[in-house]
Amino acid sequence: MFETVFKALMEGFGESLKIFALTLIGALPLGLIIAFGSMSKFSPLKYFTRAIVWIIRGTPLMLQLIIIFYGPGLILGTNIWGIGSKGRFIAVIVAFVLNYGCYFSEIYRGGIEGISQGQYEAGQVLGMNKGQIFFRIVLPQVFKRIIPPMSNEIITLVKDTSLARVIGVYELIHFGEAFIKSNGLIWPLFFTGVFYLVFSGILTLLFGYIEKKLNYYRV
């Protein structure tokens, strides 16, 4: 029995991991773009971006999933996601990337704004251009600053993947629950917790390692 359950849960965990990885791949760069938007000197862009960030951070991810997936069909009358499981999965990724992109953007913004003006000026009088100053001077320091808040968000993401089942994407919790219905087994659901714990444990160690690696300097 344990083997059957474990195999099923592994399948669900695979799906959760896919959501996790694709969200990071999309949201990490998107967050930087949003951060630039919210720091823009062009104020319409700045306020537009900040409004988006406010909306996304101010509403539950679960609601965003429902609106993104069902909204086009229910409100606009055209379902853009098709009727297969593929469309569901893409909708999940879109919602997650947007949501986490906004959270990441605020972390980036905090990190970038925390770099002292003197660093920019030092780069400037050494003749470096804007790109060089940002990528060679600012970004490496931002990276170190944002590791602790980023690791928080990323570990939250591990657990948030369970929201995908609201729109019928079968992830880890879904597979755990399936055993309650089919076999009357409750422990598989509880056992899913072990998967989340192990994975977030690995991430915690990884972030601890990176933090330690970057300890050679202070910003």
Partner: peptide, 9 residues
């Protein structure tokens, strides 16, 4: 909701 939205038939 799925049927109304067209995400299921």
């Amino acid at each position: 909701k799925e049927v109304a939205a067209g995400t299921s038939q």
